[in-house]
Design a protein around this nucleic acid. Sequence first.
RNA 1: CGGAGUGUAGCUCAGCCUGGUAGAGCGCUACGUUCGGGACGUAGAAGUCGCUGGUCCGAAUCCAGUCACUCCGACCA
Length: 505
Amino acid sequence: MAMKTTRKQNYPEWYQNVVSEADMAENSVSPGCMVMKAWGYGLWERIQRVLDEKIKETGHENYYFPMFIPLSFFQKEADHVEGFAKEMAVVTHSRLASQDGKLQPASPLEEPLIVRPTSETIIADSFAKWVKSYRDLPILLNQWANVVRWEMRPRLFLRTREFLWQEGHTVHATLKEAEEETVKMLEVYRDFSENALAMPVIAGRKPEYDKFPGAIDTYCIEAMMQDGKALQAGTSHFLGQNFAKSADIKFTNQNNELEYAYTTSWGVSTRLIGGTIMCHADDDGMVVPPHVAPYQIVIVPLIKKPEDSEKIMAYINDIQAKLKLETAFGEKIRLKVDGRDKASVDKVWEWIRKGAPMVCEIGARDVDNGGLMVKERIFIGQPEGKKIVKTDEFIASAGKRLEELQKLMFAKAQERLQQNIRTDITTPEEFAAYFANANEWIEDGKQGKVTFVRGKWCGDAATEEILKSMKITIRCIPFDQSGTVGKCLLTGKDATMDVIYARSY
RNA sequence: CGGAGUGUAGCUCAGCCUGGUAGAGCGCUACGUUCGGGACGUAGAAGUCGCUGGUCCGAAUCCAGUCACUCCGACCA
């Protein structure tokens, strides 16, 4: 076990351990913010690349808007300002001046600027300028940006004051088209999460009280972490005409009538990295899904005698050249030869803690035998975790093998999710007793002590208080509804709506 | 903003009660023996003890103030 703390011992501590031992990120001197290091930021770059392609395939184009938003913009939409008011970074001055040897803010701004917590308001303002006729619609845009939300209790990747994300914003002529866009982009997220991150999710709609401020409907994908808690991995909002009315986005329709447009917005953030960690990492550290691994294969030379160096490096260079011609997931294989002047064992374990999908050790013996030692990350700790293979065969099958490893990771995570959605709880008493348990890490192939519960909800607004007191949340109202009648797990009233109840991050 | 705690070497911490001017482990550097599941030996470099003030012949240690961080709560689209 490479981690000081195991999942079973202390799940949150284990998580912090993984982030630091995998060298993905660390706390910054700037409070609540993080420094993303090469292996963590590299994962984000991969997420960007794969997702950006999907966003463009669905007809969207990238724009960039300013990070400063005039304060007054937030006042235009009542729910929106209320939702974000408590966590805004406010810029009030434009320069510093020296006073008694101390720098003090000087030159107050006429109107304070908000460091964007999200960009609906400033983008809506542009939309209002750009939209005149139904012929201007739809507008389908996306931006990759940083946003700031003044969180009080930050956790690396899961909740930091500044984080990176993409936010899509679209304008449509009809309600139906905007609703379809909202659901379509959620589906892009579901597909991305499950196929690129190997992280299974439940897609659905948020209950009324948990909607994005200013939205008519909020849709989401919810993932299960290894401690049975839920993590919101992506959201897509149908904003109706709310922002169109507050920003005056009007267009002339085909009947020459002036109409408010319909808008949507949707986003995923660096939180996905936190989710990927808590979905796949183990007691030896991070496990990166091959599809998004900055390096899919890392080669570590084992040089015991200096005189072997030349022939080993020549052998490795040859392997490297050949591997670079191979593909996985429709892209060239990404590999690194770790030639740093360090002990080989240390380098190997460093890459295991980082979760590189495959680590190859190559020494003099391998050169003579035409082979190499390959360690597959997901099998580390098991007998099949390392094997000596013929180099030619390894090169020829590497791409396919990476794709297999990806599928195995998804299958394992999906099995865990399916095993840990309880559907046999039918009364408020059973429900309360069930969640009275403490959270506990879910051992592979077993049912956890605390799981998701799928059951009925009456939809009554008063149930929000009950949930709060129990520290349970309704994660979503899944798209696949059974349609059966049962008792609400909170009130005992007759209900038809199926929801997912869970503790959450 | 409440409640608790911690600031000493790059990291984790001991020393503080009972003042006498700095220690360990890990890491780092060099050399040697090792090396395919994470080695060992020897030598070495490295700290204005968070900051300011006070008491004292003398403060990491006592006193006062101050700053910062961590954990638990509240908050978390």
